[in-house]
Design a protein around this nucleic acid. Sequence first.
DNA 1: TATGAATGAGCATTCATTCAT
DNA 2: CATGAATGAATGCTCATTCAT
Lengths: 210, 210, 210, 210
Amino acid sequence: MEKREVLTSIKDERLIQERRMQMVKGAVNLFKEKGFHRTTTREIAKSSGFSIGTLYEYIQSKEDVLYLVCDSIYDEVQERLEQEIKVDGYTIEGLKKAIERYFKVIDELQDEVLVMYQEAKSLSKDALPYVLKKELEMVGMFEQLIKGCISNHQFILNEKESELLAHHIFVQGQMWAFRRWWLQQHYSLKEYTEMQLKFLLKDFSEQPVL
Amino acid sequence: MEKREVLTSIKDERLIQERRMQMVKGAVNLFKEKGFHRTTTREIAKSSGFSIGTLYEYIQSKEDVLYLVCDSIYDEVQERLEQEIKVDGYTIEGLKKAIERYFKVIDELQDEVLVMYQEAKSLSKDALPYVLKKELEMVGMFEQLIKGCISNHQFILNEKESELLAHHIFVQGQMWAFRRWWLQQHYSLKEYTEMQLKFLLKDFSEQPVL
Amino acid sequence: MEKREVLTSIKDERLIQERRMQMVKGAVNLFKEKGFHRTTTREIAKSSGFSIGTLYEYIQSKEDVLYLVCDSIYDEVQERLEQEIKVDGYTIEGLKKAIERYFKVIDELQDEVLVMYQEAKSLSKDALPYVLKKELEMVGMFEQLIKGCISNHQFILNEKESELLAHHIFVQGQMWAFRRWWLQQHYSLKEYTEMQLKFLLKDFSEQPVL
Amino acid sequence: MEKREVLTSIKDERLIQERRMQMVKGAVNLFKEKGFHRTTTREIAKSSGFSIGTLYEYIQSKEDVLYLVCDSIYDEVQERLEQEIKVDGYTIEGLKKAIERYFKVIDELQDEVLVMYQEAKSLSKDALPYVLKKELEMVGMFEQLIKGCISNHQFILNEKESELLAHHIFVQGQMWAFRRWWLQQHYSLKEYTEMQLKFLLKDFSEQPVL
DNA sequence: TATGAATGAGCATTCATTCAT
DNA sequence: CATGAATGAATGCTCATTCAT
């Protein structure tokens, strides 16, 4: 699936990138505070550093901003993740480290992650699938790791179990962000990570399962 | 924490209950479709079967409807759960059944659960804590079950692990609702439940952990 | 001009009088605080001690309440005044005493007077003339006194001057009420009365004017 | 006391002045006819010659319009007055002329004056003091004139009497406006002025008072 | 007579979007 | 390209009035 196009009347591609970066940065902060619906386009323009007229030169509707924000958050999470994950091989140890790093990335971007999960439903029928697709790509990263481990005889899981485990890992990361009102009062990130690893991988940590 | 009062100018308590039931029922359907912010008070009134004026006789602001909806969903989930859970003792088998039933309840009320999780953030500073409290009560139900099992030497977990496991169970239930766009295309509820049980409880299923 | 009728569906005349008295008493207090437009019929009913339904048994529209209030205030001012004024003869001394007493009555009923002057404009085309008529009757009381004095050769004024003096007196009384935010911080009622008497009547106090 | 700020989202100061002038002009006419409360913001916008949206670009609430109206009326009365009064010295003749001109200004702006006196009470706790202050400034103009005359030995009055006389003059001017329903049917402005001068200043017109 | 639940026209205000400069 | 004034449909909410009980 190619990136959904956000139409603009501007020709200079470099300018488009720059303005949109400003826009996303400003909007994320606002969405964090007040949510998408309670944020006005004027506020977005202001916190982006340009006028409402200019804002509309680079987007077609308010919803485009939300799409741009979601898109950018995914890109950032994914990018950071890929950067860190690549190094380790397909071992249980590698999988553990990947999870650890994933949790760390979520922790660093928790505001953004929160925004995305709370506001994504406001995306149009048009943009939503693209965002969900991105999510599946991230789950796919874990799935690949798991399957790599299985190929390496690190442990045994069937197809569906692998898939679900990948989802599991993914959701537990998000959980750190959107249940932070409780979790982060009771656990440090380190504690949380350790316990999650225990729950998620305990069976596999000693010997291949029969 | 006592129930947050939603002010009304109506004196007949029976009528209040009846109208609010209509209201919640009508509103949930709308919130499902279009979300809280895109639903107008007029639509809520209409789908509740009365006029906008009457709607406002029973609430003070649009947000009250959201609160009433969240409140009612929690009550229903909790009620259904308690009803089913009570019978079984504090055994692993009992815990499993409780989880199964919890997942079933979530499955039945998935629209409502989804609404609640997507819209709760729009609750005022006033109402949010009450809703979060309700959530912790539900987590608490699982925690009690788990601790009961521990007392019965069904397995060994420390305090924090028990808490986290309870959260885990709770979140996996919700996950069935808010990731249904993917999960429910790949798994039946039965499959999902079985696999979750395996992940959540596998260690404990054969013998007490040392 | 006969009293404007305020229609009611109630037959028992005694009840009508009683309910309307409650109504006026309750409404005056509310109008004082928030003005006619900002006061709701529900509030009037409540502060009158009966239900909104009952309120509308005794009036036909919210404006009727305002009319009833204005009417009742005039009646009270006029009644108190007549009661006190009658005794003295048509002398300058008598006129002075009448003015003193008028100012005292205004002082006692200043809230009511204020309400009337600020809200009378909200009366319908129908009710306004009746209220203005009442006002002229009160001015007429002073005019009579003045003309009596002239007949008694206490001083000399032509017709128009007499009229204007009567208006003058009347307006100075009201002034005590509706400029109280300044006057009552700088003068006691006694001081104000004395100075007004000096201004209004000085010329006449020593000898007939040529 | 500096002018109370009415917030606007418009940056062009010239435009603000122009639009507000239109607004005040349109609103005065409506307030005259139906009063502040019975006038809708849409009507104000329409009679100002722009849309409701534009209206709200220049004010923050309906009450701001009332404030702007009151403010503008005072400014106009005061400006016209100062313009005319300056020339004459501190003599009884000068005071008389000032009063004449004041009455003439009130006569010309009687609709506006009426609006102000009937609606000022609807101003917020915030704006009211500012308007009352303006009123005292106008009274102060007469007080200065009177005290100037006293300094010039034109007549003798103590401090409090001077103050009250100034208020007197001020109120008699207003009286021409808000009792016009009677006065203007019985007197021409000329007659009224002459008689008021006689009442207000007769004692002083021939010789200094002992 | 008394009550109070129901009604819906009406209002102030907001805000995404456009377009002339 | 950038600006910001203008627009008006849409929305949350109020409240005078009615009428069945």
